[in-house]
Simulated scan of single mutants.
Amino acid sequence: MSNLDRVTLSKPGGRAPRRRWEALRLSFFCELNARDLARLFADESVIHLLRRLRATVTIGLVDLSRERAQVVRRLNEAGVPVAAWLLLPEEGGYWCNAHNAGEAWERYGDFVAWSGAHGLEWERVGIDIEPNIDEVRAVRRSPLALVRALPRIFRCIAENREMYQGLVRRIHADGYPVDAYVFPFIHTEREAGTEVLQRVTGMIDLRVDREIVMLYTSFARPHGHGFLDFYARHFPAVAVGVTGGGVEEGLAPPPPLSWDELARDLRLARRHTDDIHVFSLEGCVERGYLERLVDFDWGVPVETEGATERAAVLTKRMRIALRALDKPHVTSLAAMAAVAVPLGLLALANRALRPSDPSRGEQPEPEAEAPASSTAS
């Protein structure tokens, strides 16, 4: 069975947790600079544990350095599968989105040349679809910064999307299956039949071999596990986290997942898929989670306590908002009418009820005379 066949198997039906490791595909994201990456894998026990877990390591291409290549080659030699996580230089936006397709093509070309020069082997290539990192940092500092992106509601992104689809075809031609790491809200936009989120944030709805939905509950406490349970059923693969690490986004990140939180999220994800990813490897190593995963019991039941239902209600409201915003011209006219019509009616009513003002030459309307009585005197 080819890599592509192996990852496009239909997701299992039902919601009963399963304990068997044989069906599980476990992967860990790693987003370290070259020096810290080399330090992480200097500990032989990390590779040993990854092999026991039969796990894949998805390496973020923060740089294309000799040190990073040495780590990948070492994993290749140890028989640990490695996936390439395509990242851009920060001045290019860092993550892939509708506004940097040209930079993504260039970065992929550099990746191919670098991999060939160092003899590196990759299982697949992943495209991380998120807004520009500078915009994320601005919004984290002040949510009002989002207002500057609102004019993009009127923008067309069809050409940008096709450039990325061309990149997917190029990666396929090089022999790699393609993943897309996506926010869960892309599913809500599909249900709404809109492109609002894509135009405003730069997210792109791409056709790839596998979508991995990023459901990081550490950013959405205490109800994040409800969104995980709600959205996970709609995607073939789920990423949980954050256990630590990640790029600096402008503010201190929330506390990493505790072991109990990670265990809960893993079991929730397993309700829906056997293809589970964890962000991040470095966080799991630092907190001793890898060792605890070796004998992890996937069958412990998890109670969502109504959180899934709350997530369903919120996403329904999001669909309504997206449909309204998807036709900005109509929405703008409707908003103007909603303001102008009541004001106009109020002005007419005020004029009709206002008493006359003799000083302005206004005379009251003469009262109609009563009709003469037809009764004979």
Rank of each mutant, 00 (worst) to 15 (best):
N3R: 14
K11D: 06
P17N: 04
R20L: 14
A23S: 13
R39S: 08
A42E: 07
I47D: 07
H48K: 06
L50F: 05
L50C: 00
I59A: 05
S65M: 05
V71Q: 00
R74Y: 10
R74N: 10
G79P: 02
P81L: 06
W85C: 07
G92D: 14
G92M: 11
G93S: 03
A101E: 03
A104V: 03
D110G: 09
D128H: 14
A138K: 07
V139I: 09
V139M: 11
L146W: 10
P151R: 01
R152K: 05
G166W: 12
D179M: 04
T188M: 14
E191F: 07
E191I: 14
G193H: 02
T201F: 15
G202Y: 06
I204H: 08
L206D: 01
I212W: 00
M214C: 14
F219T: 08
P236Y: 02
T243Q: 06
G250Y: 02
P255D: 06
L257Y: 02
D260C: 10
E261A: 04
E261S: 01
L262D: 00
T273E: 03
D274G: 12
D275M: 12
F279S: 03
G288P: 06
V294A: 06
D295K: 06
D297A: 05
W298A: 09
W298C: 09
G299S: 15
T304W: 08
T308C: 04
R310V: 10
A311G: 01
A311I: 01
L314D: 12
I320M: 15
A324P: 11
D326W: 12
T331W: 10
T331M: 13
A334V: 14
A335G: 11
A337L: 12
V341P: 13
L343M: 12
L343A: 14
L345N: 02
N350L: 13
N350R: 15
S356G: 15
S374H: 09
T375D: 11
